[in-house]
Amino acid sequence: MQSAWTLLSWGPEGWLDDIASGVLVTVSLAALTLPLGLLMGFAVALAKKSDEPSLRLAGNVYTTIFRGLPELLTLFLVYFGVQIGLQTLVRLFVPDATVEVNSFVSGMVALGVVFSSYASEVFLSAFRAIPRGQYEGGYSVGLSKAQTMRLVVMPQLIRIALPGLANLWLILLKDTALISVIGLSDILRQASIASRVTKHPFLFFGVATLAFLVLAIVSSVAIGRIERSVGRGEARR
């Protein structure tokens, strides 16, 4: 029987290096999903705040669907659905081709879609918090629509939306755990492998859970810093 410290050491004897590589996968997946989700969420929010009813409808359908589905199911729908869809498409040209969709990319797309549907709500309420006068002021000094958005609205929007987005980032970090189900070697999957090999499931799942907790704490500290630096320019009201 090996002691817990040997099991948790770095190198071929221990499993710490494997868990560390899992942490790397989790962090890079979350970090790559974030910009994708933010961009899509912003676009959907623009659609939902538009004056055009059909555009609003399209945005609302998007949010309703992807906020209503379980994240795990969305992941499977993307992973298997895209695979089957692409395979059918490719087989029109090459009869016996097999298509394998990368699980990392599927995870990114699925988590990005879920993230963006929540982010669009955060952006939307931030948009509503910005008075009309800000746009009108921008137009009256001769800025174009895009310039007003970029120079007048965006700086305020980011400040208002930041707490909500920070929350979504923490949720995203936790949701990446689901990716272990489609075979990506993230923290949780490495911990399952380790616990199956060593028969110490409590130890390894405990370490995995703590690793997620550490990521959450580190993120909270970083978010606090960002919030302070963004809020620095804010005028007293």
Partner: peptide, 14 residues
């Protein structure tokens, strides 16, 4: 602060 999946694993397998 931790994923529900990890908590469930910790209780069921752990």
């Amino acid at each position: 602060g931790t994923p529900l999946l990890a908590q469930t694993f910790l209780i069921y397998y752990g």
